[in-house]
Design a protein around this nucleic acid. Structure first.
Lengths: 222, 222
DNA sequence: GAAATGTGTTAAGACTTTTTTAACACTTTT
DNA sequence: AAAAGTGTTAAAAAAGTCTTAACACATTTC
């Protein structure tokens, strides 16, 4: 169950939000001021609903500090529609901005967007231009030709393809592919990467799908 | 560089969006109807801006089919503020809903939110006006264009950006970037700074983000 | 149960990229 | 104008990576 932190000083709105969220199976934490929010905000908060008109500290400072503690999604609620304020908050890391009075269902929908991000609709088939990878059946094709990957090779390629175009650090690879810390050597990873590259190269010799990011990790390019 | 697909039949709005996005260093693809959108939408689209009032197919059908092809973020733009329609679209996978007429900068801010969110590796991002630095994936963009930094270059820029506007002394740099005392020569640092400046200059030649503070250290300015 | 096959890891040497060094031109401070 | 500090370039040195091959181990096949 996901936990949402409500930061709102208006008693009525606060209670209303709390009820709505609880009815929709969220766990709720409460704060009535910015300083309180900073205290309450901990490891197990998944999203913050932050009202701007709080006593004490202003919204900009609070979001900055909250994001520094932990980078969770923040949805701003405010009676002010001022565009400059809005832009300021987005720049400081706000993920959404909802003008009061808002529709509860819309707020829930927006919470859903920011909380679920990749889980809900995420496909069991990851496709790139040439490569298709089926997470369920552990099969991989490149240009519609089947490739046999070992389990570890498959897990590595899956992770890289999920982050298509972004660097995956070696430590992320170790953590994800080998569950325990005590696991593999750097060289082991190299060998696996090399083997994956070889298998892909047999189908498409012109392309190197896996790019090395020196001393950091690898990146998949389609 | 990220690619955004504009799906919009109104010629004026379409061109305006295209200009705005290109000015902000996005790659743009265009579609003027739903069916066209489905054809154009391929592997290399990172976000879709979808107008609802399209000729032919209706918005609901299009978003459903688009999401099936690939789960990229979709921002709906619409003149209709009708709450039921909104909720419907969120349910079908919309990531944001912006009512026309919208403010361009706000749209850009929202694009930014959804393009960066897409990564499953939780991002810890340091942002300045032009530059974004992702501590987890070791990626840096300036004006949305990717920059390749070596590890040391990255660590230096990270430290400077963390202290944005404040001077970072050379000794702090040595202590942080090079673990032990036995570390680098003054000159070594100069060389690295020079390389970082060069890479940033290729994207924005008018600005010197890293300011030299004579005989003390360096300062990042956004 | 033995042989064959496949997987994961380690080691070694070739190779590539990054980091540092060194030299000299340049800028700021004294 | 001299001294101190900085910027840039090319090169040498160091660090990291790739590939091959060998071995241990597990699973499958005969």
């Amino acid at each position: 169950m996901k936990t949402i932190l409500i930061v709102e000083d208006d008693q009525n709105i606060h209670e209303m939000l709390e009820t709505v969220l609880k009815n929709n199976h969220y766990n709720v934490k409460s704060a009535y001021s910015g300083t309180e929010a900073l205290l309450v905000h901990g490891k197990d908060v998944d999203l913050i609903i932050l009202d701007l008109m709080l006593p004490g500290k202003n919204g900009e400072d609070i979001i900055k500090e909250l994001k520094q503690i932990k980078n969770v999604p923040v949805i701003i609620t405010s009676a002010i529609g001022d565009i400059d304020k809005k832009l300021d908050l987005f720049r400081l890391g706000a993920d959404d901005y909802v003008t009061k009075p808002f529709n509860n269902d819309e707020l829930l929908a927006r919470i859903n967007v920011h909380i679920n991000k990749n889980s809900s609709i995420s496909a069991e088939i990851i496709k790139s231009k040439d490569i298709e990878l089926n997470k369920k059946t552990y099969t991989v094709t490149c240009k519609n030709i089947n490739i046999n990957l070992s389990k570890i090779e498959f897990e590595i390629l899956k992770l890289l393809m999920q982050e298509n175009g972004r660097v995956v650090t070696k430590s992320t690879l170790f953590d994800t592919v080998w569950d325990n810390e005590n696991s593999a050597d750097e060289n082991t990873l190299n060998v696996h990467i090399s083997k994956i590259r070889n298998k892909l190269k047999q189908i498409n010799p012109n392309k190197d799908y896996i790019e090395t990011i020196w001393s950091i990790g690898y990146k998949f390019n389609d």
